[in-house]
């Protein structure tokens, strides 16, 4: 199982194994990691699973895919070029070690 390293806004690290096929949002919510809400359940429709992809992982996980993800990110606070909605990052073996940082709050 790929490991995902979630780093909350205050710097706390949470390392969890997330099964291939789940999203990074589901990995956080199922492991009760604070800082990712995922209100819409994974439809990229609420913007409450916003994360910043670590620079080293941008090529593999840093590009918003769907139109709705891009549209929702445009309306999200504190977006950066490495912003993603974590419900749209599906875990693969290739993403073992993925590092995601969280914003101050989800809105």
């Amino acid at each position: 199982m790929p490991k995902v390293i979630y780093i909350t806004h205050d710097g706390a690290e949470h390392v969890v194994d997330v099964p291939v096929g789940l999203s990074a949002m589901e990995g956080a919510v199922q492991n009760a990691i604070p800082g990712i809400d995922g209100d819409c359940g994974g439809a990229a429709a609420c913007g409450t699973c916003h994360v910043f992809v670590d620079q080293a992982w941008i090529a593999k996980a840093g590009t918003p895919g769907s139109t709705i993800e891009k549209e929702m990110l445009e309306l999200t606070d504190n977006v950066a070029p490495n912003s993603r909605l974590s419900c749209q990052i599906k875990l693969t073996a290739e993403l073992d070690g993925l590092v995601l940082r969280m914003p101050l709050g989800q809105h």
Binding site: D37, G38, D39, C40, G41, A43, A45, C46, G47, T48, I68, E71, M72, L75, G105, Q106, H107
Partner: peptide
């Protein structure tokens, strides 16, 4: 469980701005 999964704020680009 998953109490946050509700429709009251709407979804998509018009989702409630003041929800938090």
């Amino acid at each position: 469980p998953r109490a946050r999964h509700h429709l009251s704020f709407g979804f998509g680009i018009h989702r409630c701005l003041g929800n938090r």
